[in-house]
């Protein structure tokens, strides 16, 4: 590569903050599967790379009082294989399992995936419906930000230069909860999602109290959830008619960009109903 930069791999978070505060043009390196590509293409020109991989506690999945805590440096393959990401969380491990390809999944991290915030990012819609929050650490402070506030646009988050994502936290789901992740890809081996969707149902067995969440990727700049559509589908017996209603509401709200090369806006709109129908059908065990 021609782009020149320095490289630093701190052992502690404080060392990382120190390095970041000294260099305004520093970039954090996690798995590198986006960063290295972007450096090579000239899309970004950092003067310092801060590699966090030597800070071991930044990776791994654990269960704490706060919920399921995922270190940002946890790789996709680690997510896919985690014994803690079962039940309500299984859609996240499934999304991780089909992201990129095996070698990419050995490097790509969940932190990198959400910070890169590609509109079709594999983990974004599962994390959105799971109501994940992101722990952002600065030099002397720590804050918890809901994921839907954290991601602000394609390749954009609220993260400022000196900050580091230190955890991704998934709430507990004491009630029965099930989710399903779907995507359209052009080839089966390795492709970025053309359009994707996560559906989550809390209380799928209790018609009155069931709560449906659905997030769509690539139809808007950030993962899109429609409050109105979710209301249509929640708290009552779901029928094909309701699904069609919900899909039509979503279609009236979204605005897929016409410049995407992976799928046309028409196709993405068309897939909304299909995803809703398929996701709910898989979760509820009903054919619509």
């Amino acid at each position: 590569m021609f782009s020149r930069f320095d490289y630093y791999a701190p052992q502690t978070l404080n060392d990382a903050f120190a390095a970041l505060s000294k260099n305004g043009n520093a970039r954090i390196l996690a798995g590198g599967t986006d960063l290295v590509v972007n450096i090579r293409s000239g899309k970004i020109k950092p003067s310092l790379i801060v590699d966090l991989k030597k800070i071991k506690w930044l990776s791994g999945v654990t269960k704490t009082d706060r919920g399921i805590e995922i270190g940002p440096l946890t790789t996709m393959n680690e997510l896919a294989e985690s014994s803690l990401l079962k039940g309500p969380y299984s859609l996240l491990s499934y999304a991780a399992k089909i992201m990129g390809c095996y070698e990419i999944r050995n490097r790509a991290t969940v932190g990198g995936n959400i910070i890169n915030a590609s509109p079709g990012a594999e983990t974004l819609t599962p994390l959105t419906v799971l109501h994940a929050s992101v722990e952002v650490s600065g030099n002397n402070n720590k804050k918890l930000i809901p994921l839907n506030k954290f991601v602000t646009g394609p390749n954009n988050t609220v993260l400022s230069g000196g900050e580091i994502v230190t955890k991704i936290i998934l709430p507990f789901y004491p009630q029965l909860t099930a989710g399903y992740y779907m995507r359209r890809a052009r080839v089966k081996g390795m492709d970025l999602a053309s359009v994707n969707c996560s559906v989550l149902v809390v209380n799928p067995n209790n018609i009155e109290k069931c709560q449906v969440r659905a997030a769509f990727g690539t139809v808007m700049p950030t993962p899109y959830r429609s409050q109105k559509a979710e209301e249509i589908l929640s708290g009552k017996k779901i029928t094909l008619d309701l699904i069609k209603q919900a899909a039509s509401v979503i279609n009236s709200e979204i605005n897929p960009r016409a410049t995407s090369l992976r799928a046309t806006p028409e196709y993405k709109r068309f897939m909304v109903e299909y995803f809703l129908k398929t996701g709910l059908s898989k979760i509820l065990g009903v054919t619509f």
Binding site: G32, I104, R107
Partner: peptide
Amino acid sequence: GHPVRSCLILGVEAD
């Protein structure tokens, strides 16, 4: 122990 893409890894990461 893991297969990786060497074009996406910096040489210094191999340390």
